[in-house]
Simulated scan of single mutants.
Amino acid sequence: MTRWTRDPFRGSWAVLDGRTTWTRLRGPDFRQLRPDVYVGAAAEQDLRMCVRGLRLWSQDLGILAGPLAALAYEAECPWDDAELIMPGRCHPAPSGTRIRTDRLSPDEIAERFGCPITSPVRTAFDLARREPLVEAVAAVDSLAHTCRFPSDYLRRFAAGHPRARGIVQVRRVLELMDPRAESLPETRLRLGLLDRGVPPGVPQYRVRLLTGERKRLDLAWPEAMVALEYDGPGHRTITGQNRDAFHRGRLGDLGWNIGVVTSAMIADPVAFDELAARVLRQLG
């Protein structure tokens, strides 16, 4: 596979250059990414390919934003739709792509995969304006944790855009965000408990075990020695299960009461209510 078929290219340009024909582009050797944007059929379709294809479709005018920008920073995001910021009017957006017209200052633009994307704080600001609120907070938590910027950084940015659409929700996100959360479910757990009257817990609370080993608890109430651990995919392997059993036994030796939370408990309102009531009883 040649270099030009490994990377996205404009079909019309390739035909004009004599590298291929429209008939061949419609055949099995190529895959269409966007209108007039193609790649070789054997090329790996990954985030980089998606980003470069969008940039090429925009004729090198668009700046990647929103969920794909967050994913490009290797942050988790509840959404994965494509969003592109254009400096002016453009052709109708390709299917599954949101186009916004805006002018960004130089410090609001970064680079990934050789393409311009919104900076981490600008990306967080845009995601904070999305609904629902809980998912917006989860997205901002993940981006702030991954890119290591504090809530004050986003607060100063928001203060510079007081008339932006969705600024009221951004202020609410700022009240609720906590960059210490290490996954989307951890944020959903934290906010769901708050909504059910449970006092705020401490995300990723550090505990030193009697063995000298350090352990971080997903959500803890240190004064009451109560904590919750989210049971994600990494905890379900044999190695993960054994590790968790040892840790929870050693935490119990210190007097900690550890509860285990699953994705089903967070998704089921009745189970979530029961979990919140259980934590409230333990907190006394």
Rank of each mutant, 00 (worst) to 15 (best):
L64A: 12
G18M: 12
F125K: 02
R6C: 09
L33P: 01
L143E: 08
T23M: 12
C115M: 12
P269Q: 06
L71G: 00
L47F: 05
N257E: 11
A181L: 06
D29A: 10
A245R: 14
G53I: 11
G53Q: 05
L127S: 02
R155A: 15
P67E: 10
E223L: 13
P150I: 09
L217H: 00
I99L: 14
M49L: 15
R208Y: 11
D253W: 13
F9P: 02
P87T: 12
R214T: 15
D268Y: 03
L154S: 07
P162A: 02
L176V: 08
L209D: 03
G160W: 06
F272W: 03
R216A: 06
I266G: 03
I63Q: 09
A14M: 03
G18H: 05
D195P: 01
E213Y: 11
R190G: 05
V270T: 14
V37G: 08
R52N: 08
Q169D: 03
L228R: 13
L209M: 04
L143K: 10
C147A: 13
L133S: 07
V279K: 06
V51T: 07
G40H: 07
Y38Q: 02
T187K: 06
L16W: 07
E74A: 08
A138S: 10
R112V: 12
D36M: 12
Y205Q: 10
G249T: 04
L174D: 06
P132I: 11
V173N: 01
A69S: 08
D102P: 09
G259Q: 10
H91L: 15
V226K: 02
C77A: 05
G62V: 08
A82L: 13
A136H: 09
T239R: 14
I85F: 07
A227E: 01
R156W: 08
D178R: 06
G284D: 08
I63A: 05
G232V: 12
L228K: 13
M1S: 12
A43D: 00
G18D: 10
R122A: 11
I85V: 10
D7V: 10
R156I: 05
V198C: 05
L193W: 04
P116E: 12
R278D: 14
T123Y: 02
E182Q: 11
A220K: 01
A93W: 12
S105G: 11
W13D: 14
G234V: 15
T211F: 10
L68N: 00
E229V: 04
Q32L: 06
V170Q: 06
L184C: 02
R281D: 14
E274Y: 13
G234H: 13
V140E: 01
I63C: 10
S119P: 14
P92T: 07
W79F: 15
R281I: 09
T239S: 12
A124S: 01
S58N: 11
Q32W: 04
W22I: 07
T118G: 04
T101N: 10
E83N: 05
L54M: 15
